[in-house]
Design a binder for these strands. Structure first.
Lengths: 334, 334
DNA sequence: GTGAAAGCGCTAACAC
DNA sequence: GTGTTAGCGCTTTCAC
């Protein structure tokens, strides 16, 4: 609990000099600097961040708000952001909104109260998430993965629509007669865009859109499981399936297996985002691979540029291209 | 960027009154309180945390330092801690040491500099991780999952040794003749304890300990993969395998599959900790299930009790019992 | 190159 | 109940 004054006293210099040595803000004679360093060492002095933050009206912490920390996609992106932040001497306050608007709003307040240096957020709801607190306080924000509407913020998004269209085409080309789609809730932009791409794919192939083959569930493993059960309980038995989320894909595959069906012989499956565990299964999963590292990297880049440019610069959007990786969970051209 | 003074001015009261209304620290007449709330709303006032922290010499943030954010075991525990922290109005600064001592030391410094209200840490190295900065600054710490030696801190640990012994016995009872073990680096206590339990299991069954059947690799997927390749490249081909980590188990199963071997017919496998993806594979994984929720809950409990009791109270250790869950990746009694 | 001093926004001790 | 005031630890003018 030593303060800068204790250090100054011990080193027989003024607090200002200690500050200068520690921050390298101005020249200090070698001899005195050495005394300061010795005193710091001796007292185990650690500058008290809140005092500095109060003085500078700014924290060297960034907040990362994600919709689900337990989703490997997000942890992977978070990890990338954290690594990047570290390079710039920034710490990361990780907040898990848990797909819950109220929790998200709470964390947004926290980030504002802390006057964090920047925010990277993957919103819980495209329409309802409210980013205006950041904008009104002049805190730089970057939205990633999910599109927030109603606020003009820098964004790093993925071309979900195109990739989903390709995934659907791939299923049809492989002989899929009845292609089903499992996607997420309406409040999540990625869920909608992926559904949109699925429709594009059907259209391109001249197939009719059949509502009974489309299910919306939570972006969780249980959701995928449930959806598959419902699909196969119905009259139409799809022979091809596009699952628009990584966790759901796990659930869907498990349910397919429980139903005694084979992949890809009975049902072709395309998932979304990589799942490490896919290698574990006997089947290699055909999937739309997300550019996780690029998401993190572009997020950091936009954030830094925003910090640099100030709030007046026009918002920018980076659109990344995911890629369909064909493995063995889908049938090839007949 | 409104401050408490702006609010006071607008509400025609003193800053102290505003503070009292916001914190409920003392009675304020209903009328004035209402004026204050209106002013807060009008100005979009958010108290500036660093100023409060400076005044109170304490942050309402907890730090959670984990060894690997990308490991589902840790994210699950982190999530539990975060949920618990929220209940007590605490935020969580998540730090990923990435199994790296230097990175960990950096985060420990940050946590000290922020004077966080408490720390939950899963150390990168049993022997080398240095928790003394917390103790010397009087910051409450709880170690979870991995045992830190050299410092007397509250700990929530799992009885790795016993569970591993049971896992090994199970493999032997199922007809395992040559039981191999893949574990982690020496610096990680859980790796050592699990190995120790494996030896206990062999001993109990009167089997000799064979060093060539024991491999240490990183606690990562690639490590498990590599280890299996090495094992089967050797002269002795084990017919039973205990993998002492969740990610490694994924790699090990993949490598076994690549080698054209069947589980459990050719190789019985027991993993450590649940892997959601196990349900996805054709095989249900027999595994030592970790009490993730209990780890988080006990961690929070010890932290709160430590905060309550102060630094002088004797450190406590909670030992949790993991449970062997038998599924279909192991052969049953012949 | 160095020190004295002011002040960041908040809370708590003190007066009334 | 309420306002006045001091001070938390730091950085940054401003003098010298």
């Amino acid at each position: 609990v030593a303060s800068i004054i204790d250090v100054a006293r011990l080193a027989k210099v003024s607090p200002a000099t200690v500050s200068r040595v520690l921050n390298g803000t101005a020249g200090v004679s070698a001899e005195r600097a050495e005394r300061v360093r010795a005193a710091v060492e001796k007292l185990q002095y650690q500058p008290f961040s809140p005092a500095r933050a109060l003085r500078k009206q700014l924290t060297d912490v960034w907040a990362v708000i994600v919709a689900d920390v337990e989703n490997p996609f997000f942890t992977s992106v978070v990890r990338g952001i954290e690594d990047g932040a570290q390079e710039f001497g920034r710490r990361v306050l990780l907040c898990n909104s848990d797909e819950d608007l109220a929790k998200e709003a709470g964390y947004i307040d926290v980030a504002v109260a802390e006057r964090v240096g920047g925010v990277v957020i993957s919103v819980a709801s495209t329409k309802q998430s409210d980013l205006t607190p950041f904008l009104s306080q002049g805190i730089p924000v970057v939205a990633i993965d999910r599109r927030p509407i109603g606020t003009k913020v820098d964004s790093v998004l993925v071309d979900n629509r195109l990739a989903s269209k390709q995934a659907t085409e791939h299923l049809i080309e492989g002989g899929g007669e009845l292609v089903a789609c499992i996607t997420g809730p309406k409040r999540i932009s990625t869920a909608n865009e992926r559904l949109r791409g699925y429709r594009d794919g059907l259209e391109k192939a001249g197939r009719a859109y059949d509502e009974s083959l489309v299910l919306r569930e939570d972006f969780r493993q249980a959701g995928g499981h449930e959806a598959v059960q419902q699909l196969f309980a119905g009259k139409k038995h799809p022979d091809a399936l596009f699952v628009a989320n990584n966790l759901m894909t796990l659930g869907a595959l498990a349910a397919i297996r429980e139903a005694g069906l084979r992949v890809p012989e009975d049902v072709s499956v395309v998932g979304f985002d990589g799942i490490d565990a896919a290698g574990l299964a006997r089947i290699g999963l055909t999937t739309v691979a997300q550019p996780r590292e690029q998401l993190a990297a572009a997020g950091i880049r936009l954030l830094l540029e925003r910090i640099e440019a100030g709030p007046e610069a026009p918002p920018r959007t980076v659109l990344l291209e995911p890629k369909l990786v064909v493995r063995s969970s889908t049938r090839r051209e007949p």
